[in-house]
Each structure stands twice: as structure tokens, then as C-alpha cells.
């Protein structure tokens, strides 16, 4: 089986480089600390948390963290040694479509890895609070397309915005619009929000709204991949001129 070369290279660096290892360690340490801080029994009896279970709160935090790290590494806000940016790849012989697909795959796989690595901490909460661990599987249907879409958008921003400040600004703006802004929208538009979608998936299971939301983010990832291909074409065209 031929593996996308861009995906293979990017993923190898994200898994083995020192910076990536430090980033994953910090991510796991944050999740571990959150799990440990949720141990006091009284915490589960606070009114707000009684309504929305601690496990759900944890899954939302994990989803947002995984999405941020995926997009931050893709956009270059967190630079991973050895990982090729769109500018480097434009100078390579790979076809634009391979580059676009490779970036999407990298983002999706990295998000899957982060979500998977956080599972044991969810298991602590689930075991202590007696809540079903299946909630994670339900949430993953939404969380993974969301994180993958943000990863693809991050990769696109890396090729579109040359200025670090502008790139970071747009990256954070995207995060805020999707996570905070969409959540504040009135119903039913608030289901655009990954937070609301995760809540729906965990509480009510897989329903039409959940699948529509997941499909929307998957489509966003695909569109970002297409845009990356176009952008590679454009960079190559500019270089030839």
C-alpha cells in the first residue's frame, strides 16, 4: 500500500521530534492534572456540573485542546522540527493534490492520536464517577472531524499568511469563532459549535444533527485540502513567473 509521502514525513516528525514529544507530554500532563483535580467528591455535586457531567466537561476540554494543538502545529504556531511547510512542499515534485491530501491526513491522524492518548485519563473519570466510557466514542464522531478541519485550516494558513503575527491572529480568530462564537449562536445554529455537537453526541447519542455537524467539519477539511492544492499551484505559478 502506497502511503501519502507528505503525510508519512509530517507524521514521523510530529511523533518523534523533541518539540512534538514535549508538546504531547504537556498535553497529557494537563489532562492528567485535570483528571486528578476532578477527584474531590464535592466537585461532582456542584450545581453546574451536576447538569453537565464532569466526563462531558473533560471530553470538551480534550477536544478543544486536541484541535488547538493540531491546528497550531499545522499552521506553524508551534514549529515541529523537520516538518515541511506548504512553501517547502511547493518546491517539491509532489503534485498539489498529494500535498493537500497529505496535510488533511496529517491533521486527522494527529488529532486521532491526541484524542486516543487522552483516553486513559477519561477512563479514570469514568471509573470514579460511574459514567459510561462510550461517551468518548460518541464524542469522537464530532471531535475528530472538527480537529481535522482545524488542522487542515492551519496548514492552509501556513501557506497563505507569511507573517507569523497575522497567521497566529487568524488562527486564534478561527478557534474563537468556532468554539466560542458558534456556541453563543441561537438554536439551531449553535449546533455549528463543536462544543454543542459534543454535548449532543454524549447526551443523546448519534443523531441527525450530530452527523450533519460532523459532515460539515469533514467538508470543511476537504475544502481546506482543496484550497491547499490551489495555493500550491499558485505558489508554483508565482515562482515560475
Amino acid at each position: 500500500m502506497r502511503v501519502n509521502p507528505v503525510f508519512r514525513s509530517d507524521l514521523r516528525h510530529r511523533l518523534t521530534s523533541r518539540k512534538a514529544a514535549a508538546m504531547i507530554t504537556v498535553y497529557l500532563a494537563v489532562l492528567g492534572a485535570l483528571a486528578f483535580l476532578s477527584l474531590p467528591p464535592d466537585l461532582g455535586r456542584l450545581d453546574d456540573l451536576r447538569q453537565e457531567s464532569l466526563l462531558l466537561a473533560f471530553i470538551i476540554v480534550e477536544t478543544v485542546l486536541a484541535a488547538y494543538l493540531t491546528s497550531a502545529t499545522a499552521s506553524g504556531e508551534i514549529v515541529v522540527e523537520g516538518e515541511k511547510t506548504m512553501w517547502d512542499l511547493a518546491a517539491s515534485p509532489f503534485p498539489p493534490g498529494v500535498i493537500g491530501r497529505g496535510k488533511i491526513l496529517t491533521g486527522a491522524t494527529f488529532a486521532l492520536l491526541l484524542m486516543g492518548l487522552g483516553t486513559p485519563f477519561l477512563a479514570i473519570l469514568s471509573g470514579i464517577r460511574g459514567e459510561p466510557l462510550q461517551a468518548l466514542a460518541r464524542a469522537a464522531v464530532v471531535a475528530l472531524p472538527f480537529a481535522a478541519a482545524l488542522g487542515a485550516l492551519g496548514a492552509l494558513y501556513a501557506g497563505v499568511f507569511e507573517s507569523d503575527f497575522t497567521r497566529s491572529f487568524v488562527h486564534w480568530l478561527t478557534l474563537l469563532v468556532l468554539v466560542v462564537g458558534a456556541t453563543a449562536l441561537p438554536a439551531p445554529w449553535d449546533t455549528l459549535s463543536p462544543v454543542r455537537l459534543v454535548m449532543l453526541a454524549v447526551r443523546d447519542g448519534w443523531g441527525l444533527r450530530v452527523f450533519l455537524g460532523a459532515a460539515l467539519y469533514a467538508a470543511l477539511a476537504a475544502a481546506a485540502g482543496l484550497a491547499i492544492s490551489r495555493r500550491v499551484d499558485a505558489i508554483r505559478g508565482t515562482a515560475q513567473e
Binding site: 483516553t119 486513559p120 477512563a123 479514570i124 473519570l125 469514568s126 471509573g127 470514579i128 466510557l133
Partner: peptide, 14 residues
Amino acid sequence: VSTAVLHTFAAGAR
């Protein structure tokens, strides 16, 4: 394996 171990331990602690 880690998930199973931690979940079992936490459920036992509960």
C-alpha cells in the same frame, strides 16, 4: 491496556 488498567483501578476506588 492503559485505559483498561486505569478504569479498573478507578472503578475499584469508587
